[in-house]
Design a protein around this nucleic acid. Sequence first.
DNA 1: GCCGGAATAAGTTCACGATG
DNA 2: CATCGTGAACTTATTCCGGC
Length: 399
Amino acid sequence: MEPIRPVVLVSCGKRKLDVPAAARDLYVSERFRQARKFAELYGAEWFIISAKYGLVFPDQVLNPYDLDLNALPIRDKLTWGDRILSELSKNELLNQHLVVLASEVYSEILQGVLAKAGAVVTSPFRDLPEDAGVNILTRVNGNPAQMSHYKKFYDLMLRLQQMPGQMTAFSELVGKPLSKAGVYFFFGPHELTRFYDRETLRVVRVGTHGVSKGSKSLLWQRLRTHRGNDDGTGSHRSSVFRLHVGDAILAAQGREILSWGVGGNATRETRESERQLETEVSQYLRKLHVAYLPVVDAASADSDRSYIEKNAISLLTGGGAIDVQGTQWLGNFSPTQQIKSSGLWNVNYVGDSYDPNFLSIFEELITRYEEGRLSEKSLAPQNWRLHMQRGAIGQQQLF
DNA sequence: GCCGGAATAAGTTCACGATG
DNA sequence: CATCGTGAACTTATTCCGGC
């Protein structure tokens, strides 16, 4: 099923042709051209929002002009917002999903009036440096296939999240209702998808367990090591997730703990000196929300758990990765390059290529979960591990 | 340059003792 | 007995590095 296409609103640009032209051609900045390409690729229809002419159809011929919304007094900006609103309303666009590709001033004013009108708005560039937008668009425009896989992935994720016991705060998660084995997904805090149809929490970590032959480890055991102890402490030496979060907290605050992450074990005194940070790590983690996909095939390196984990990470981070973390995201401070550039608290499989067919297996596993018929038979292609490419693409850095 | 073993990195698994 | 806390082993892939 093809996701519903949004209506895209692109803000005008300063640089223009010096002759009258169709609005789609009048603006010549790279930002505008990439936004136009995005709108034509992914939008149902699109419009230009001009400081001077308001809502403009792409083929409407305009004379060159020089008017920047930024330069106007606040009263005029608000008037402009109301004008766009009434024009959107006149064209019956307010009940559509609107994607706003605009610089800060434009999108702030629009957000304000549109929210009041109850419209569904996505602003992919919210909470990003001003110049990041064009890079993101270039990347996303270069990969229409990945965009559709990304949307499919989050469609399925929403289905998974509907199931009872899903998306609880990590602090509230208890062992009982969990399946014995599966793939887990962490979300938040305050991290949202940028290009999905709805305002959906963004995946920030994918992990699993039971990926070596004969393993008897349980999903809950694995999650518990990440969550830490009941007294608020924990052990980052047993949980790479905790290790990374701790590293980022240290870096963000310019602190240093020389023993952090060093060695597979530590003396009582060392652990005591790390206690404060472990507590902070737990506080951070407990605010995250968790979804898990039950996958109960036999433990092995090429189990379906590993297949789903690898391909989910690679889809979200490889090549023309679609999503981008906000500037407030703690992982931006991570000393680990893969985390900083991918927006995921993951290192393995980051930036690799993925097998789009994994989405149908992901879907089948969700269907089985919904229908209460988990199977111990693996669904992933035989020898998928042998065929997978590693490190093929690598995500470009945006900021 | 390139082969192969050692070291390292990333992540998971597990054994064992305490606790309740 | 189930859960919790801890320390360490294990698995897999990658990087390093000396010898040819």
